[in-house]
Design a protein around this nucleic acid. Sequence first.
RNA 1: GCGAGAGUGGCGGAAUCCGGCAGACGCGCCAGCCUUAGGAGCUGGUGCCCUUUGGGCGUGGGGGUUCGAAUCCCCCCUCUCGCACCA
Length: 826
Amino acid sequence: MERRYDFDEIEKRWSQKWFRTNPWAAPEVPDPERKRYALTMFPYPSGDMHMGHVEVFTIHDAIARFWRMSGWQVLNPIGFDAFGLPAENAAIKRGEDPKTWTYANIDKIYSSAQRLGISFDWSRVFRTSDPEYYRWNQWIFLRLFERGLAYRKKAGAWWCPKDKTVLANEQVIAGRCERCDTPVIKRYLTQWFFKVTDYADRLVDDLDLNEGWTERLKMLQRNWIGRSYGAQVDFEIEGLDEPMTVFTTRPDTLWGATFFVFAPEHPLARQLVRGSDREGEFEDFVTEVGRMTEIDRTSTEREKKGIFLGKHAINPVNGEKIPIWAADYVLMDYGTGAIMAVPAHDQRDFEFARKYGLEIRVVIQPPDRTLDPDSMIEAYPGEGAMVNSREFDGTPTPGSIGKVTDWLAANGVGSHATNFRIRDWLISRQRYWGTPIPIVHCDECGEVAVPDDQLPVVLPEGVDFTPSDEASPLATAAGWVNVDCPDCGGRGRRETDTMDTFVDSSWYFHRFTDPNNDGAPFDVAKSKAWMPMDQYTGGIEHGVLHLIYARFFEKVFMDMGMSDSPEPFPHVLNQGTITMGGKRMSKSRGNIVEPREAFERFGADALRLYMLFSGPPDQDFDWPQEGVEAIGRVTYPWLQRVWRLSEDNRDVVTIGELPEDAADRALRKHINRTIKVVTEDYERLSFNTAIARLMELVNQAYRYRDVGGGNPNVIRELVETLLKLLAPMAPFIAEEQWRRWGHEESIHETSWPRFDVSLAAEEEVTMVVQVNGKVRDTIAVPPDITEDEMRERALASKKIQAHLDGGEPDKVIVKPPKLVSLVVRR
RNA sequence: GCGAGAGUGGCGGAAUCCGGCAGACGCGCCAGCCUUAGGAGCUGGUGCCCUUUGGGCGUGGGGGUUCGAAUCCCCCCUCUCGCACCA
């Protein structure tokens, strides 16, 4: 008998075997009724595995293994999000190739995942930086290009001066670069975009299809997409032939529009001052605004600034001439880049009007007081009745917006309109380590798609990838850049920007359903059989980035007939973040627990259980200051206890039927109740309580054994049930002991234990008796007790009589079989 | 400012969905047993207060509904997260 729990030997042996034989390979095409697809968000290989990975993998793997034992066909793949900036930055620092650094990290994570016992299907692994993968990024790009969903335009873009590349709006957090926290500036560049805005309505509306999303996650996306309803209104502009359109959510305040404002960067603003004596002042202003970082520009404390452009606009509802200004508080990239200003009812316009002495005209009167422009200290944005608005006077707010808009439409000066905060997705990156954009620029033909049969456009090697302010690294690879135009055969130049890596992760989950396909990104039938995903686990930090882009791709795929599911991930689990001392773990802070150290000292099972036992999966967890030692105090000793329980009883002889005494029956009931509650715990992802229930069972088993040696049949039933219920969370110890009990097949290929209803029935339940809401006695009663009997027994209790003071209760509430509540009025 | 979530022992947390013995399970702490002295193990105790049988108090604070509230409703406080000149 091997008493010692030699986790290191056991775990290494099984993990190697599992990796070699790949027992969790998913079928090519599953039975659609029996399939489940579980995935963690694409890991980025920035080093070895860290605790965040351990947490997400462990939660995810417990789900996948539980599903498999419950009879589902499970797809549980893993791959690597291998392109991206950190690899280049590390490579520059170390003077090596980004590929070398990335692939070395992938190897580390890969082997750590094996050592942790994650039940991945190892036959489906891929890296996005391999041409076999990214050629399909290019293929998809070309399909978007054909549909007008990929286009190039010159626009203001966020530029990170440190990373020397542009960023998507989603990658700018509070005016700073998402990766390096550097304040971003705006640069005007010609860039490639994906037309997410075409799908904005569907991206909002379909959120409701995601029944497995938290309200928090949906809200994050709704906020980001930022849909608002209102009207477009056309203003004639002095000196221009065409009217200027503005968007407003409050067309009912049009009669209070007393000035008109352009964003400083707006081309028409410049046109209006051209040649006038204000031109110099205007250019200085534009330069000043352009130099500001996004943080300065949008600071709410900053006083708004603007200049009069010397021209006027015509208010279409009353023909009034109102002055045109340019001001820094109007944004070029929201709406049309110009607004009608209604100072009485908009706080920003109010502040601006007060500063520059512009007219404030009240057109909405609140129900409870009367506004006076001269004495107002802030704008009134609320509801009320329209005034100073001719035939609309008296119209109350809720309905007035629609009425005014109908009127504008009837008079040809406006229409109903929806506006979004979300902008098109800027996918160009001026960096090397990414997917080349498959376009050739030709002097004759313009932007020409690289034909499908010439894909992939392979990323050239040996390029100086040091980033610069002027050009993308690929522009320096002359031999690669200069090509013949695919259309006319004339001289062409390849596009030298690479794609945002979020393109790679917007469809990789489809690729997992058919990872080796070299004729298409994936086989549509296979993908449709596995999708939509049944559980997607990852951090909330991807709540707006990855999840918006991937949802956008899914809708495009749907329109192309490549998908049947409007939403790819109806069930998302955002695991909590792990901190130490309240701060994110990091090497530089020194508050780090290395997974490798944890599983070398206490084993993967102990580490996995520790993660799961620490709390609900979606809750943040602050790791104790003692670090890895915490595992040695909590789950490691318990696993030893499990080991001994199983190991010490293995030699018991089973000799067919044995008579059962009361203790045996009690324990068998406990085993069955445990199956029931632990199964429910797995189903609601409540692993911490599942472990608690298993701990109770083990405690019970130890006590039972102490009493009288125990019935071998019952002990076997207990141990084998325990091992099965534990297997998804601690796969190694479960497998090892299962085999030691003489089983030929893997425990992970057995079916989940069934709950025996006849054994679960309680022989007695505890009836609680309350007097005036306080518990005064508990009485053991049969579960099928009648209400009358309950009442009788309650009133017969001496303790209860003492509390009744000899009197009769005024009211008796009976809830069989567990509660009698007596009410006494005094 | 707007929106969302959360406040339970010394600590992590359970019970909250569906009102019915608050504190499961574990850590820590206390006591005992045992010893192949190990990172031991095993058993019991452990919300606070009162002298006990027993009783009182107790889930951020205040109010309400109810026979009964950690759980439902209203107000307030605190913390965390997201958004924040979006017209």
